[in-house]
Simulated assay, not measured.
Amino acid sequence: MIKEFKEFAFKGNVIDLAVGVIIGAAFGAIISSAVDDVITPLILTPVMEASGVANLEQLAWNGVKYGNFISAIIKFILIAIVLFFLIKGANKLNKKEEAAPAGPSNEEVLLTEIRDILKNK
C-alpha cells in the first residue's frame, strides 16, 4: 500500500497539479490585492461616494450586498484575462513546427523503380 501511494504521489501529474494549485493561490492573492487596493479605489470610488459607502463590502440595496459580488466579478474577469494570455503564450512556445511531409523512403523509391521496369516490359 505504501509503495502504491509513493507511485501515485510522485508521478509527474500530481506534482504538477500541486505546483499549479500553489501558484494559483498566490496569483489569486495578487489579483485580490489589485482589485481591492488599486481598481476599487481608482474606478469605484465615485460610485461608493455617491452611495455614501466607505468600502466596497458595504454597498447594499434592500439588504442585498452587491459590493462583494461586484468585487468577485472583477477578480474573475482579471484572472480569466491573465490566464488566457498566459495559456496563449505557452501554446505559442510549445507549438512545434509542422514537419514537412517526408519524401519517399529508399525502399519506396526502389519499389517504384522496379514497378516502372516491370511496366515497360
Rank of each mutant, 00 (worst) to 15 (best):
M1H: 11
M1W: 11
I2M: 11
F5M: 14
A9E: 04
F10R: 04
F10N: 11
N13H: 07
D16H: 09
L17G: 15
G24T: 12
G28C: 05
G28H: 07
G28A: 06
I30Q: 08
A34D: 00
D36W: 04
D36L: 09
V38M: 13
T40F: 01
I43D: 02
L44R: 00
L44K: 01
T45Q: 13
M48A: 09
E49M: 13
E49S: 15
A50R: 11
G52E: 07
E57G: 13
Q58A: 14
L59P: 00
N62T: 13
N62A: 13
N62W: 14
G63I: 01
V64N: 10
K65I: 03
K65P: 02
G67N: 01
F69K: 09
I70L: 15
S71V: 04
A72L: 12
I73N: 05
F76A: 11
L83D: 04
L86H: 02
K88M: 09
A90E: 06
N91W: 03
E98I: 15
E98Y: 08
A100D: 10
A102N: 13
A102W: 02
A102G: 06
G103A: 13
G103Q: 07
P104R: 06
P104V: 04
N106H: 09
N106D: 13
N106P: 03
E108C: 03
E108H: 05
V109C: 07
V109L: 14
V109N: 08
L110K: 14
D116L: 12
I117N: 01
L118I: 10
L118E: 12
K119C: 01
N120K: 14
